[in-house]
Amino acid sequence: MRLAFIALALTVSAPLAQAASQPDPAADMKAFQGYFLKQFPKLPLAAYVNGPYNFSKSESDQWKQIMEFPPYQFAVDDGKKLFETKFPDGKTYASCFPNGGIGIAQNYPMFDAKTGKVVTLGIAINRCRVANGQKKLKLTVGPLADISAYMTSTSDGKPINVVIPHNPKALAAYEAGKEYFYTRRGQLNFSCASCHVQAAGMHLRGDVLSPALGLTAAFPLYRSSWGDMGTLVRRFIGCNQKVKSEPSKPDSTAYRDLAYFMTYMDNGLPESGPGARP
């Protein structure tokens, strides 16, 4: 009798399990964006790129003031200089990217079929350096953040357009990123979704929690609490630490896949990096 019951449970759950294991990024994205549009009916899709400023008048007033002299402008200027400086072999970053690297940031992260891995804009910049005999740069701060800031500025307003090709490895990377996003971890047992979905728009101490939709759109960004520019992985590290979890390595597969999933969810939103935050 009990056995029969288990057998029944198995037959019922098997098709479900199969359905769940078949990734459907396009359907996920529709549901994801739909969830937030329903949750915050007054907020148009494009506004999500402004993160916390949608929820706090004082912060958004402050922001408007800050934006009269955008704090990331130095980074964009420095990044442009670096971007145009020739490597010893005479080539520049432009030689490594489609369209000379201009107006293409909205297409990252990208799946690289050759290595079977996700490549973020930062990782692509480092690959370019290595291809031209240069050392890799730090993926979190400094010159690489500046170069990303410049490249991203040339994509201002273009719709985010991350592609997940019909490649089992690309789909697996997407699924892994999705699982990472929703998995609780750390001694405090939070997932990214605990704060950025379940508590979106609420206050965690002095901070307004940005909704998960649009979370990647303004990177790299200048944070007053950092005092300088940081890339998306810098933020991942900070949010991991908040839940008392050891961060992953900046170029880890975990973070690449996470960025792939999150940025795909933001498809169609206007690229709005570099940004500024309190």
Partner: peptide, 16 residues
């Protein structure tokens, strides 16, 4: 506690 909960005497408390 005050990162998420308001209570009297808490400074810059959250509201989760």
């Amino acid at each position: 506690c005050d990162a998420c909960h308001m209570f009297k005497g808490a400074d810059e408390a959250g509201n989760i």
